[in-house]
């Protein structure tokens, strides 16, 4: 399987292309949207793109279990990030009554 065929049939390249496009879409969400909650979702999407690439490589290396361990660690870090990030968004909303990242550009109120 090579080239276009690999993408359509689900070869290694197909999964990597999906992972890269997911990462680009997550990055676009972080850069182009202003709502902090949406930017946060973009970060989650980028973490997921890394997971797709990791597990695709593991499958094509004969079902390597090491990748699953790293996947578990990435999930743990993503869960921590979700808890702390959302707490920060709530804190910002309490202080400035906004969830717009442009309105939270300054350190002083």
């Amino acid at each position: 399987m090579t080239g276009m065929d690999a993408i359509l049939q689900g070869g290694l390249q197909g999964y990597l292309v999906v992972a890269f496009l997911l990462f680009a879409l997550g990055l676009a969400t972080v850069l182009l949207r202003r709502t902090l909650l949406l930017q946060f979702m973009g970060v989650e999407l980028m973490l997921n793109a890394a997971n797709v690439a990791l597990l695709a490589f593991a499958r094509f290396r004969g079902g390597d279990a090491q990748a699953m361990v790293f996947y578990l660690f990435i999930i743990a870090v993503a869960a921590c990030e979700a808890a702390v990030g959302l707490a920060l968004v709530i804190g910002l909303f309490r202080h400035r009554d906004t969830t717009d990242s442009d309105r939270a550009a300054g350190l002083k109120q």
């Binding site: 399987m1 070869g11 390249q13 499958r59 094509f60 290396r61 004969g62 079902g63």
Partner: peptide, 13 residues
Amino acid sequence: LKALAISGAAVPQ
């Protein structure tokens, strides 16, 4: 990547 895709094409357990 092409070589890896060919060498690992068999679905593992």
